[in-house]
């Protein structure tokens, strides 16, 4: 379906894509703080908490992510965490991006010597 393919590609920004992947990798521990740490580590750049909240929110709204409240932990001053999980749409979108990207990169050697 033409439409769906376009949706997946157009509606996901690079940041969102990174966050979706981070959520997937972190599994049960996918809440704001580790997500930020993960992305910072992988990209080697500083990410503020705010720059993670906004895309997370947006992804929930788009239906790629779902969230639930976990139990409270002492290192958070006794506050609950909001844990994010990928929805089926989220997984599909990731699949799609991966397929498109691997097709695009296929046969292209290292660009920089």
């Amino acid at each position: 379906m033409k439409n769906e393919k376009e949706d997946g590609l157009r509606l996901l920004t690079r940041t969102e894509e990174l966050i979706l992947l981070a959520v997937w990798r972190l599994k049960e521990n996918a809440y704001c703080v580790p997500i930020r740490a993960e992305i910072s580590e992988i990209t080697g750049e500083k990410w503020s908490l705010g720059s993670v909240y906004m895309p997370l929110d947006r992804l929930v709204k788009k239906g790629f992510l779902d969230s639930y409240l976990s139990e409270a932990t002492p290192e958070r001053g006794g506050r609950q965490k909001r844990i994010y999980t990928l929805t089926r749409e989220g997984l599909k979108a990731l699949e799609k991006i991966r397929a498109v990207q691997s097709r695009m990169w296929n046969g292209i050697p290292e660009l920089v010597e």
Binding site: C32, L49, A72, E75, R76, G77, R79, Q80, K81
Partner: peptide, 14 residues
Amino acid sequence: WKIPLGDFEEFYNE
């Protein structure tokens, strides 16, 4: 929105 308070505290610790 009180949940971020926890996130902030954790990050603060870090």
